[in-house]
Design a protein around this nucleic acid. Sequence first.
DNA 1: CTAAATATTTTAATTAATAAAAAATATTTT
DNA 2: AAAATATTTTTTATTAATTAAAATATTTAG
Lengths: 227, 227
Amino acid sequence: MHLNYYFYKMNFSHSEENYIKNIYHLQDESGEVAASSLAALMQTKAASVTEMLKKLHGKKIINYQPYKSFSLTESGLKTALEVIRKHRLWEYFLVNKLGFNWDAVHEIAEELEHVSSTELISRLDSFLGNPMFDPHGDPIPDSKGKIKMVKHVALSELPLKIPAKVSSIKDQSASMLQMLKHYNIHIGSNIKVMRKFEFDSSIEIKIEKGPVSIISGQLSKNIYCIV
Amino acid sequence: MHLNYYFYKMNFSHSEENYIKNIYHLQDESGEVAASSLAALMQTKAASVTEMLKKLHGKKIINYQPYKSFSLTESGLKTALEVIRKHRLWEYFLVNKLGFNWDAVHEIAEELEHVSSTELISRLDSFLGNPMFDPHGDPIPDSKGKIKMVKHVALSELPLKIPAKVSSIKDQSASMLQMLKHYNIHIGSNIKVMRKFEFDSSIEIKIEKGPVSIISGQLSKNIYCIV
DNA sequence: CTAAATATTTTAATTAATAAAAAATATTTT
DNA sequence: AAAATATTTTTTATTAATTAAAATATTTAG
């Protein structure tokens, strides 16, 4: 019987890793996680979630009491950040070394993130030059699980005339990408909000070395920036 | 119900891919494959092999009649070469981009070879400069499944004074690697057999830009060359 | 050519992981 | 306190892979 010595590296199934990762994302937004939100996010049924919660609780990955909302333990957090680190490093590789578009890499990284070798990830990290952010602007945890806490603020919430950098796009549908292309906005664009129009919530923006444009309130809510 | 249209890309489980790959390796050596050899190679029981054979036959991957030896169909061959292509490209990447030793990459490539995206492999191939051989000297199939047919001949079988290039090492144990280091022999070394000693099957070799050495018959049987 | 040895398949059962419908129970809202 | 909602338990199912033991086919040796 394998015990969980502190130096013993636990292995998780793909499914477990996906659950752990998604619990992290939810708890990152709002502290604790309800079974129903997790079921919704993972497009599965509440009963399936409960099954997995019992399993993860048994492995000391989550703090969990029946009927209560739950959160990752320290060990769970560490595991989540390892998976997220892998995912984001692979995304960086796919875009910056293999030349993929940033909107095409998520699915592939979903597979690559489950490859288990830590030596591989450590070397990949060096090879890529220890990048801090993935192609979507999300921070990449370091080998110790340390992650830059970046506040992503929607363009719609940005104060006037404060320079900001586009860091991520919420809705990554094809129609959204089309719009971004039209306005020549992409991850890394330096941008300022010049005016806000109360009437329809549209805003006037200035893109560095680019024109002044007016974008809809809806679009501005989907573009996130780092100030 | 999904039918197997000619443009429909079949998906295989990791286990199926491993079986297909290993059938390829056996059939590459000796034309047809017996269930028992496959069971031995894969360290499993004959009954498990039969189960898988029925499944692969159902998917038109092998030519199979009960109790007879079997072989890959054209489609099976294509699949096998795709998996082997992935495996060898990843090995090349691990060694030549991430700086792994060539003897440390097999296990990691065993995982990476099952990542499904073909776009990924096509881009990886370009990124690596369309290499022809992996770090063990084995040929990498191209995107169409075309593979350099290289005849690997053991140093012990090499005619006298014919220049050859070390292409692969059969026994990849630590003790073997130690010996190779001692003699300064590695994949790609240009080498000639100068004399053969009948008494103990040892041979005298000349390594390009290196000294003349005598190696044991046992060692010479484990070093393969391309003539 | 036949008996014995060997190889392969079938059968039946097992394990493991995941999923989920339906019923039961707990919590929250009104 | 009742109603609505959320969660868990129970039960059932699926899928994939594995294998011991029995049955059957093939090959080998005498």
